[in-house]
Write a protein that binds this DNA or RNA. Structure first.
Lengths: 277, 277
DNA sequence: TTGACAAGTGACCAATTAGTCATTAGTATA
DNA sequence: TATACTAATGACTAATTGGTCACTTGTCAA
């Protein structure tokens, strides 16, 4: 488990410097100080490494946003906090942002295209949730357009973080974009993005959270977890999936236990979806 | 000259399907129906092909936008026409868009990073020109932010064209984005992007149009041009660069002659810059 | 000290790569 | 027809690639 993380970190450095295809397994193992054989003990192929990385880093990003959006912030700061956390993430993880937001070669591999689209759809859902909380039914016709605008702001301003390291005033940026978002939300009248269109583009990731995939995910996390409250909680939840015995309140509490560790936020997020909490 | 074009076209197809690094010279020559040796008669290396392609396709795009922006359209349609032409281009050249707007591995090669940044800066200038025409000094504090928003809208909505071929109503889209742009321009009060910041990010492409580079560009175009009015015009302009004898009016007319052919728009654009017309 | 088993090694392999160059095909002039 | 030229070929090379596997090392309990 730790070896895997080491490889992913060093690989991320190299990918962000040279790109995925131009980086050889040899280079990765050299930077890790391990042998080629050791690499193939952790990952079956080079592609599998990439898939794991996409999962690992995009999960972090998507979950972080969702947490801000669903956190109990007051309405007048939520937009500012939303943007602040996004650009904080871009700043902190500029290497992974470079790889996963820009190296779209990734998208030529079908499996990854679906994975990345799915994470993108998750992010869209979070944004829509935020807009619904903020504006209720004021913008029922234009909410998807506003969502596209927000994603556009993110992409455009993210370049400042990804391709240079100029010191920037995050607070000012967040305020500026929050204002723009509010203005757009309040004044837009001509919609373009319809619900159907969103569903069309998000098709490949419509899959529900299946029992199987969830169980697999849990086992994966259990394997790297020593005896602890978190482990117990996760095991209890695992049985809960097949056979619902405890009340919603208990389940929610167990999930909360898990979410405390940042590396388990994603499982928590998926569990919440499954149990509809 | 024609062979080069054939190679660039087929290479574009392959790059958009598989990415640059995953496409071999062999594959390119096979799709062209030529031998490997023939490829290396047109391009010294695989990298040189990529550079030529960036120049060829981004030039087209940037010049097209500039033409719309500087065309004599009335103020109330210019924004709509701007967006319409942009997304028309995305639709028509979705393959090159996929490669050059998304495969940012390109950016790990320094030479290309500078080239692409330079074209991006050209586009930014066109957008700023448009905003200045539309709003005069109404938005002197926020024009760079509005420019960033416009680029964000482009990036966000472009995905609809690049990653799917859903039939879309271009007019509706253009209207919708024009409205959003106008709203942002009129209401934004908190600026973030300052002139200095723009200059910082655009540093590598600040170079003026030098005599040498312009002469080289002209020779390049002359080499593939039979006897014609265009050829005569271009030759006259070539001498004009070293020794200004004709009036501005004549020079402008000569440039206009050249611009009639779409493949020469870029030379025309650079000449205009050089002669400050 | 022994033995058993997992963790780790790196020489090795077949396949593929970008790029070269001696050779040939095609064409225009004399 | 002979000559001189360029355009085009594809077998070749040297290097690199992702991936394997017979082997060594380290770490336990007995």
């Amino acid at each position: 488990m730790l070896k895997k993380q080491l490889i992913m970190e060093k690989a991320l450095e190299l990918f962000s410097e040279q790109g995925f295809e131009s980086t050889s397994v040899q280079q990765i193992t050299e930077r890790c100080g391990i042998s080629k054989g050791a690499f193939y003990l952790s990952f079956k192929t080079k592609d599998e490494l990439l898939v794991s990385m996409v999962e690992y880093y995009l999960q972090q990003f998507v979950t972080e946003i969702d947490q801000v959006v669903r956190g109990s912030l007051s309405k007048d700061v939520i937009l500012v906090e939303f943007y602040k956390s996004i650009f904080q993430a871009f700043k902190k993880h500029s290497a992974s942002a470079r790889v996963f937001f820009n190296e779209k070669v990734l998208l030529t591999k079908k499996e990854l295209f679906q994975k990345i689209s799915a994470y993108d759809a998750e992010m869209s859902k979070s944004i829509i949730y935020m807009l619904e909380q903020l504006y209720r039914d004021e913008l029922h016709k234009t909410k998807y357009d506003v969502m596209y605008c927000i994603k556009g702001f993110m992409k455009s301003y993210a370049e400042l973080f990804i391709f240079s390291d100029i010191p920037l005033d995050l607070d000012q940026l967040a305020k500026s974009l929050a204002e723009k978002t509010d203005i757009i939300a309040r004044h837009t009248t001509i919609p373009f993005i319809t619900e159907d269109l969103v569903q069309l583009t998000a098709k490949p990731c419509n899959e529900e959270v299946t029992k199987e995939s969830l169980l697999e995910l849990i086992d994966q996390h259990l394997s790297g977890l020593e005896e602890s409250i978190e482990r117990d909680s996760l095991e209890l939840l695992k049985f809960q999936i097949d056979d619902l015995t405890y009340s919603k309140a208990i389940v929610k509490g167990l999930i909360e236990n898990i979410r405390l560790r940042p590396e388990h936020r994603w499982v928590a997020y998926m569990l919440k979806k499954f149990f509809k909490i």
